[in-house]
């Protein structure tokens, strides 16, 4: 923990110094920073040291059909500092095949289930995750339903059950 909370500009500058080229942008007062995938864990660990102690969310966006997208998957880490109430959005982009990111469970326990959910619904693998199982879908499910190439109504998995009539029960 630093003695003085850093200003957002200082944090971005520090991040750029440590992780090479980072893209930053601001939209509606929200600061976003794109971190290259190989350095994502270091960047997030450094950000945690700078006082971003609360991991609000880990999620993902599948940019398959998004106009002008350069990468397929964009991970989103929403960080908050409980001391200064400063928010920061960290983006990490990964691509097919076998999209993999380093897990941040060692930094924030909150990431455990959030990363499992992303693995479940998007198929992003988190290396170093202690227990990377499906979270919401059945374990035997094979697809990753929030990917854009998966249809809303599914592929018929929801109809695949035995039928119990009055005679059976």
């Amino acid at each position: 923990m630093p003695s003085m909370p850093l200003a957002v500009d200082d944090i971005l500058a520090g991040l750029a110094a440590r992780c090479g080229a980072v893209e930053t942008s601001v939209f509606r007062g929200q600061t976003r920073v794109v971190v290259p995938e190989p350095r994502s864990f270091e960047a997030l660990a450094w950000l945690k040291e700078q006082g971003f102690d609360l991991l609000i969310d880990v999620t993902c966006v599948d940019y398959l059909e998004y106009p002008g997208a350069k990468h397929r998957y964009g991970l989103v880490y929403l960080l908050v500092s409980t001391a200064t109430n400063c928010r920061l959005t960290v983006r990490v982009f990964v691509d097919d095949p076998d999209p993999t990111v380093k897990s941040v469970v060692p930094l924030w326990a909150a990431a455990n289930w959030l990363e499992r959910e992303v693995w479940d619904l998007f198929g992003i693998r988190f290396s170093g995750h202690p227990d990377l199982r499906r979270l919401v879908m059945p374990q035997e499910f094979t697809a990753h339903p929030l990917r854009k190439d998966y249809p809303l109504q599914g592929r018929g998995e929801r109809h695949n059950f035995p039928i119990i009539t009055r005679d059976h029960s």
Binding site: Y150, L152, R155, I164, T165, S169
Partner: peptide
């Protein structure tokens, strides 16, 4: 909820 996960009516599978 006409989605991949929701059973479209339980009467398909139980009386």
């Amino acid at each position: 909820f006409d989605t991949y996960a929701v059973v479209q009516g339980i009467d398909r599978f139980i009386p």
